[in-house]
Design a protein around this nucleic acid. Structure first.
Lengths: 210, 210, 210, 210
DNA sequence: AATGAATGAGGCTTCATTCAT
DNA sequence: AATGAATGAAGCCTCATTCAT
């Protein structure tokens, strides 16, 4: 209860996320199989055995990494959509902006690459991620598109597939950053990339003015 | 000299690509580190040791897989672009069509996912892939965009970044197929997906009609 | 802090030499290449993996075996020579006696056979052994011979080559013990062997009395 | 029967010894276990499979190497001893001279090192070598010593052990050449070495005058 | 007789996991 | 709670041996 004991306690409670953070970094960098628990422990500043105090196995650690990666940004965006009143395209931009703040510019940005690389090795985890992130994100975009079509702002389209096409460049931005980006000698400008994506969509989705 | 002696020789020459084909399949499915050479050998119908008659190591096999994945479809597309005379958007569609035939519907479709998952573990291979595939593909799209801007068909844009945005959904189509696709209960319709992508682009790239 | 915690630590420190001892025995018996790490581990009462906690590789273990085999007997003999005051032949006998006590009758006796069998496969190790053992031993014998020649006790001779001839039977005694000795049905009497060697030398080195 | 067919036939008959010669060289250089049959085949200028036309296994090849190494020099020396009429020391010198010509300066010189290194792995081969080479060589030296003692030329001695001491430097000369010799920067002078050995023996074996 | 492609047992090495401290 | 020494299963790779040509 003394102030001295606080850092210790906070430390203890913070441990799991310190460990998953270290694990996420290495899993993204090298892949699940090629990452050694010893390296994760070293990066987190603990010993190998300590990992087993918090996670039953390497696989359990992986699951925790992904589950922790499902941050409440989806819920946030659902709330944003719920109270949005402007144009549908504005909504899409707001959602993207929030995603960019909460995911794209944080360590969680590595999750998509990791999940894609390991989906087939961990089908249940992939399923979990799909249900809790992808499906909800799709629904979110989908309702924005439906809303825009209903109002006449967007042209008619196959919504389900259009969602995939819209999301693809956004995911790819992150995937690229954690894979081939090192091969490019020029820095990619994420802001510009996202802006161009939205520019294309603004015009591409618009109901043709006759 | 006799035709009888051929099968042996033909086998010898055909082996490497039989092996890389098997390896590609498993690398895409499980990742490089999680794939056992024994499984690759089994899939190719040979023994473990046989792999070493053709490749020095697992890593060398990986390199061969990627290098063999650089099929001449790029050159083909360069030729298509060179002799194209219609609208620039038509050119983009032709290039996509050929890519879909030669890559998207073949075993090579797995290469992008594999390369993305392993890029950081094999920087030289990634560099090779970048130089020989990505850079040339970018140049190809880029010249089509420039051509369309020059003719007034396309609106003005930051070409370099727009290329990335345009390519992203195409790459993502393949990446998805070899990763999260298994989580979806509905079949993805690739044709529809590509068509929608092109629809969005057709309208999105068009110079605004006053 | 408690004495109870000691055994673990003591073990940790004692391990390397337990392992090299086991390795020496098997390397001498079967040769480096024909010895399996698993057998070394078994002889030392540990598991295969434990070896790698202390040595990076089989080759590193070999090096350690040799380096540990360079016991300070040479230094001891150098000290003996430095303070010797009797006849030069007496000195040779003292050196031999000490060598016999500290090397010939211990596990280190196997080193010469091992080193000879593997010298060409491990040139750097051989070089190390040569510099730290052989060269110093030669210098030691050499100075005894010079001393004896100077005093008139020994006849004139080509010292460098004579050293080799003198050492040969001593090395051979050990080499034989770890190789062909098993083919003989009679026990070799090392004491007698060494005594006869010295007898031949006593008379063979003596300056002719005219 | 045509002259043209001769080289072929000679070739065929010569094969086994070409193969054992290549094998001896590599066995001596690297040891039995560390030598690959492929390298032996390559050195002999044949393919790996060809070895199995002449030898059942790697071990059989090793046996053949040793057996072929038991050249009739022993028989020769036995004949020399039988017809010798001069001093006993002269006989020892003659035997050594012949050995030096027929073994010491030929490829067979590597046999002792090889046999010593592998004796414990191939006890039957070692036994064979012991019976057919070592025992007979010992008997030869032994009878010369007995002869010299009987005539009063040599002093009294334990013959069996003295033989070992006498032979040791001779064996060591060869063993050294194929092991540690590479560590010395100066060339060893074998002639001088053998001469010094005999000088020591001449004086060392002599019956004390007076 | 000769080849060399193919095999698969076996060894070195790694690393997830356990457990005594 | 934390450590890190120890384990042993498993994978990469080698190479003696076989066999179709």
């Amino acid at each position: 209860m003394s102030p001295v004991s606080q850092p210790r306690k906070r430390r203890k409670e913070a441990r799991p996320s310190e460990l998953t953070a270290a694990a996420l970094g290495l899993f993204v960098e090298r892949g699940f199989a090629a990452t050694r628990l010893e390296d994760i422990a070293a990066r987190a500043g603990v010993s190998k055995g300590t990992l087993y105090l918090y996670f039953d196995s390497k696989e359990a650690l992986f699951k925790a990494v992904i589950q922790e990666g499902v941050v409440p940004v989806i819920a946030e965006n659902e709330a944003i959509a719920a109270r949005h009143s402007g144009s549908s395209f504005d909504l899409l931009e707001k959602l993207l902006e929030n995603w960019w703040q909460k995911i794209g510019q944080t360590d969680f940005a590595g999750i998509p690459k990791l999940m894609i690389a390991e989906a087939r090795n961990f089908p249940e985890v992939a399923q979990f991620y799909y249900e809790n992130v992808i499906r909800r994100a799709h629904a979110l975009i989908g309702s924005a598109l439906e809303r825009g079509m209903a109002s006449g702002e967007f042209r008619r389209m196959d919504v389900a597939t259009t969602i995939d096409v819209i999301i693809a460049p956004i995911l790819m931005l992150l995937i690229w950053r954690f894979s081939m980006a090192c091969c490019q000698n020029h820095e990619g400008d994420s802001q510009l990339y996202l802006q161009i994506h939205m520019d294309l969509l603004r015009q591409g989705l618009r109901a043709s003015q006759v």
